[in-house]
Design a protein around this nucleic acid. Structure first.
Lengths: 117, 117
DNA sequence: AATTATACCTAACACCGTTATGTAAAATAA
DNA sequence: TTATTTTACATAACGGTGTTAGGTATAATT
């Protein structure tokens, strides 16, 4: 399991990234993240639904109720233009922080050189 | 500037990673992060000092007051064994989440395939 | 003499994941 | 038939943490 802070940092960009491939609904997104993370990320519905509602209010995604054949109703979400541009920004920020870690963990081209004190 | 959540997720592992190269003190750590991030991460002292005190209480780092030649006093921190093992865990978690993003963003070997609904 | 840089600290506020709980229907198991 | 699990959404109290604002003190620079 990931730390609370790491979950908080990755949730929004993960949702936006998944929705960038097509519309989806909460319950399925939870399963999708579980599959993508190979069981490492086990989101609870009590975490995700408020996130989706917030992102809806912020205009990053848009929702629509759909009734399926078997009688169940689902709330489908799709990414908006604002959501796409936000994803781009957050993606750049993630990659920047990741670059620092790669450097600090000796996984990159240029090794970390501590500054002289 | 990174989002609040991304800052929260990266602060602890960043501090532990930097201290894994040798002891250091708060003010210098802030400058070091600024240098490493090429000006992207501008930590405030009001953010870092409580973090360092918490990590000290948790036993991830240990502190020691040092008086410099010029008369100023600094609180030097060093990483503990618990801090090193914690860093290893958080590093693995970060890399796992990063792997998902790399996949979703089409930067890796195996492209993302949305599950059929 | 005044300002900036160094170096540490605390407090109120807002945001958000966690835990717990609720509602409801379909699918499966006993 | 009945009970349990899965599907599918939602809200409320709680705790942890970055942000903003303010405080103390000394050395270096203007």
């Amino acid at each position: 399991m990931a730390t609370k802070a790491l979950v908080a940092a990755s949730t929004k960009p993960l949702v936006l990234s998944i929705l960038s491939y097509g519309e989806n609904y909460g319950y399925q997104i939870i399963k999708e993240v579980e599959r993508l993370s190979q069981g490492q990320l086990n989101w609870t519905d009590a975490m995700l639904y408020p996130v989706l509602n917030r992102m809806d209010k912020e205009g990053l995604i848009a929702s629509q109720w759909v009734k399926t054949e078997n009688g169940r109703k689902r709330k489908y979400y799709r990414i908006t233009d604002l959501g796409r541009s936000t994803l781009e920004r957050e993606r750049a920020q993630w990659l920047n922080v990741n670059r620092i870690f790669v450097q600090l963990w000796g996984m990159g081209e240029t090794p970390y050189q501590p500054s002289l004190k």
